[in-house]
């Protein structure tokens, strides 16, 4: 190689000021860019469209479902009971539980962890980037539901979807925080996440004492109940928004702090991850 040509491209020292927002911008860029491969876009489209399509066809082909409470109730079963309260938490479990482990499995985490940042900053910016991406994909799914509902003549679709678009924000925030701790704690985060869901959300959440406030689903239901048709559908009285939001925020913060401390103390390496 010509030594002169090497010296021609000698690099001036760039001005470098590592900061949280720079880290967030970098991680966000790597996150969304990595989602836009054809293979992942096909997967994303199928995830976004499959449930709205099912809900669309359910009206014409599923008479017994429609008889439960009319078309609107069937639509609520798809959008609220099935999507917001079941599919979305499971989606969060796979996305946030795997957010660090995906880099470990791809064996590219060393390029990130050797950058000038605190480990908690890495973890938190990863969380925020995945949070933004999941909010976008969830919103797209709800918009697809809106289209399906409108085409089938469901009552008051705009207000329903607006409510769900608002509720998805705290839902993804809190389920994401819980899932990210699961992902850092164990390789079998999917199994443990589902067990957690059954025990806390379905189990403790049904106990008719104050302990049921540990179930985030209950707080989300009380927020959903602000929209009267959903209050009737879920059989839940609208609760205090402040209480619900405070509980969700507190759980989110606690889980994120525990995760950040854990990530700061523990080593994560490719060989451990691949040994599962």
């Amino acid at each position: 190689m010509n030594h002169e040509s090497t010296l021609e491209t000698t690099l001036d020292k760039p001005s470098i000021h590592p900061n949280f927002f720079g880290i967030l911008a970098g991680i966000w860029k790597l996150t969304w860019k990595s989602q836009l491969t054809w293979k992942k876009v096909y997967g994303l489209l199928s995830n976004v469209l499959v449930l709205p399509l099912l809900s669309y066809f359910a009206f014409s082909s599923s008479a017994p479902m429609a008889q439960i409470g009319g078309q609107s109730n069937t639509f609520y079963m798809f959008t609220v009971d099935f999507y917001i309260l079941l599919v979305l938490p499971i989606t969060c479990l796979t996305v946030f539980g795997g957010m660090v482990r995906d880099d470990l499995q791809e064996d590219t985490v060393c390029f990130l962890l050797t950058r000038p940042m605190k480990r908690w900053q890495f973890f938190l910016t990863k969380y925020l980037s995945h949070l933004a991406w999941t909010q976008i994909t969830t919103a797209l799914t709800l918009l697809a539901f809106a289209l399906a509902g409108t085409l089938r003549g469901v009552d008051d679709v705009p207000n329903l979807i607006f409510t769900l678009l608002i509720i998805q924000i705290p839902a993804v925030v809190v389920y994401g925080a819980i899932s990210s701790l699961m992902g850092l704690t164990t390789k079998k985060y999917l199994v443990f996440g589902i067990i957690y869901g059954f025990v806390v959300e379905f189990g403790i959440g049904q106990i008719p004492t104050n302990i049921n406030t540990l179930a985030m689903t209950n707080h989300l239901k009380s927020l959903l109940a602000k929209y009267p048709p959903l209050s009737e559908h879920l059989g839940v009285e609208p609760g205090s928004s402040l209480t619900a939001v405070t509980a969700i925020a507190a759980v989110t913060i606690v889980f994120l702090v525990i995760s950040s401390v854990l990530f700061t103390m523990r080593e994560y390496n490719h060989s451990d991850e691949m040994s599962k």
């Binding site: 760039p14 001005s15 470098i16 000021h17 590592p18 900061n19 720079g22 880290i23 911008a25 970098g26 991680i27 860029k29 790597l30 860019k33 990595s34 836009l36 491969t37 992942k40 390029f111 990130l112 950058r115 000038p116 940042m117």
Partner: peptide, 17 residues
């Protein structure tokens, strides 16, 4: 799945560039 420029600029931003 990334192109080199995207990867370098992402890592660069993380580094504070």
């Amino acid at each position: 799945h990334l192109k080199p420029m995207d990867w370098l600029s992402g890592l660069g931003q993380i580094s504070g560039i």
